[in-house]
Amino acid sequence: MTEQVIVSSRTIDILAVLMLMMTIVLVGTSRLRTSIWAYAIRSFLLTWVSGLIAYFSGIHHIFIATGISLALKVIVIPGFLFYIVNKTKVKTEVESVINYTLSLLISCGLILIAYYSMQSIIKFENAFMGHCLPVSLAITLLGFFVMIIRKKAITQILGLLAMEDGLFFAALSTSYGMPLIVELGVFFDILVSVIIMGIYVYRIKETFDSIDTDSLRELKE
């Protein structure tokens, strides 16, 4: 391996680990805004990775995917989420089913499982970009975990987005030679964001409804 390849694969590894750190922030933080920021930063890192991979592989499809995800995940979705948080004036404190220390410990275990279960594949791949697969699995698992333990709809969506990021990243890092799958990933991406919009609209409506009825009741009294 040339020096450049080592450096670039190490860079991708470091970016992957940073993405994982952002996901841990999602589990560990108690503030809604922080978790949206964490999502935005993670998406930015993800586009960075996919940009790097596109640059090194020279596959045009990945450039397109990078562009789309930059626009969508770094700008549109976080902006939209911030907009909704501001608009609905939900309390910024995140509510969790189990306490934080415990959820941190469990997520630690999840990461361990991810690394442990991927070790045979990593050995096979000769330690080149070794962090990508376990990290993508870990992000997916953590996203799932967040969906389970969090009460608020927005945090659940953030969990879903984390899962999606993990899957996209896994596809990107393992099979950039197969542009079809990457494109499928992007498709899935868009699909998910559409679902998000759907849920959001529903939730917002629900929230407004309840606020409305409350105020109506107050009027009556």
């Binding site: 922030v25 560990g28 220390t101 997520s107 690394y115 991927m118 330690a127 962090h131």
Partner: peptide, 25 residues
């Protein structure tokens, strides 16, 4: 009593650090 959360995050990062060192090298 939020401090243990922050330090717990540090702990996870350090566990992750050493495990990834073991698994990936």
């Amino acid at each position: 009593f939020r401090i243990p959360n922050l330090l717990g995050t540090a702990f996870i990062l350090s566990v992750l650090a050493i495990i990834s060192l073991y698994v990936v090298g």
